[in-house]
Amino acid sequence: MKQAGDKFVLQLYVAGNTPKSTVALKNLNKYCEQYLKGRYKIEVIDLLLKPQLAEGEQIFAIPTLVKKVPKPIMKIIGDLSNEQRVLVGLNITPIQK
């Protein structure tokens, strides 16, 4: 596993408790536990409560996962059901099982 020291700061933008958001959060938790155990931080932001954050982070789709750290900032939109794409988006090389 490379970049062992990197810490991941992930923000998941949702709008209320929609099925898509729930699925996305579930998927995200699963991937993080699997690949980034112990060095990630997930922040769930509900735009219905904080709509002003949407503009600053250039959020247009729901749900959106934003990888703040490490750089570059990357956005992954959708319910994160495609594992390969999520890993590519997070720039994680999956461990060969």
Binding site: A15, K20, I62, G78, S81, R85
Partner: peptide, 9 residues
């Protein structure tokens, strides 16, 4: 990156 279902919420 697009993965799965989303909307423009």
């Amino acid at each position: 990156e697009e993965t799965g279902e989303y909307d423009l919420g």
